[in-house]
């Protein structure tokens, strides 16, 4: 029995999350051949050469991303290889394409798994509530379709496949009915929330849109980005693109400074990748203190400007 991993690439290199999916597949089925599938054109062929699998297949599909076309390619290859597992990264596209394949084949699909044990049925552990809770589940299906939660396992280092093979999947017109028809490039050039090394975030405790001036000042002194909680976006104080959490952006900065944020599980789901968390909160009992490394207790409207002033002082600015 063989295993197929649906992989994604950027600029001719396999994505980190796809290499994590390869690692997951190889550790789940150490005795079986693990193949991979990339969909696309020249860049997909280039990325195939860096996938550490048995055969890296490239389904030649011209043009932009079309989820149903990717699903057709995957279903066709599954059938040809008589594979009994299809594994993809738990990315936007990975989850979307696997759901399409599962619909085609009338099979269940388990999204965002962190562990699995082979058997009949296969037993798996998957993420709920954006990672605040885990679920142990059984997948009753002749073909296992699952995605791998981001950062659940370490990625396989890129490596040469034993073979690369290209093929043209038999696409129907309907497979291309939904596809990317254009792109809007970002306007801003500031530090992006997802990539910033330091994020200074404000919650309901900031009190108003204007109150964010002190948060912005500290973020800019540290060359970081401004974040916020959902209480803040719901109140209209900040745009949703600043929201950290389960339904906002997931971040992994070196330092996360959470000001006036209580630490709800859905907020922490977005910042648990931070190396260090500093909480500034007036309530010494706030739940965030149980996940923070450091805390300052008191009014953020006094503390945050004092920190900014001190930074200016030590830097002689």
């Amino acid at each position: 029995m063989t295993v197929l991993v649906l992989a994604e690439q950027t600029g001719g290199q396999p994505d980190e999350l796809s290499l994590q999916a390869v690692a997951f597949a190889r550790s789940l089925f150490p005795d079986r051949p693990v193949h991979a599938l990339l969909v696309g054109e020249a860049q997909a062929v280039a990325a195939a050469a860096s996938l550490p699998v048995a055969t890296a297949y490239v389904a030649e599909v011209e043009g932009s991303y079309a989820p149903a076309a990717w699903a057709t390619a995957a279903a066709e290859l599954l059938d040809r290889l008589q594979a009994d597992s299809l594994i993809a990264p738990g990315s936007d596209r990975g989850n979307e394409v696997l759901a399409h394949v599962a619909c085609r084949l009338d099979l269940p699909f388990a999204a965002n798994c962190v562990a699995a044990t082979p058997g009949e049925p296969i037993r798996l552990t998957r993420v709920r509530w954006g990672g605040s809770l885990l679920e142990e589940a059984l997948l009753h299906a002749p073909i296992t379709i699952l995605s791998v939660a981001p950062h659940a396992v370490a990625a396989s280092p890129p490596g040469r496949p034993q073979a690369v093979e290209t093929f043209q999947p038999a696409l129907a017109a309907a497979d291309l009915a939904v596809r990317v028809v254009g792109r809007v490039e970002p306007a801003g050039t500031g530090v992006s929330l997802a990539e910033a090394k330091v994020v200074v975030s404000g919650g309901r405790g900031v009190g108003s849109a204007e109150g964010f001036a002190v948060i912005e000042e500290l973020a800019s002194l540290l060359g970081g980005a401004v974040g916020c909680s959902r209480a803040v976006t719901s109140a209209g104080w900040r745009p949703h693109r600043d929201q950290v959490g389960q339904t906002g952006t997931k971040i992994a900065p070196d330092l996360y400074i959470a000001c006036g944020i209580s630490g709800a599980t859905q907020h922490m789901a977005g910042c648990k990748g931070a190396k260090r968390i500093l909480a500034i909160n007036s309530d010494p009992e706030a739940p965030i203190l149980a996940s923070a490394d450091y805390a300052v207790i008191g009014d953020l409207h006094e503390i945050v400007p004092a920190i900014s002033a001190e930074i200016r002082r030590v830097q002689g600015r």
């Binding site: 037993r123 809770l133 679920e135 142990e136 589940a137 059984l138 299906a141 996940s291």
Partner: peptide, 16 residues
């Protein structure tokens, strides 16, 4: 169910 929930687990929090 074909995706059958067995039980829930609260992840080992790095409670600090």
């Amino acid at each position: 169910p074909r995706l059958e929930k067995v039980r829930l687990v609260v992840p080992e929090s790095q409670r600090k």
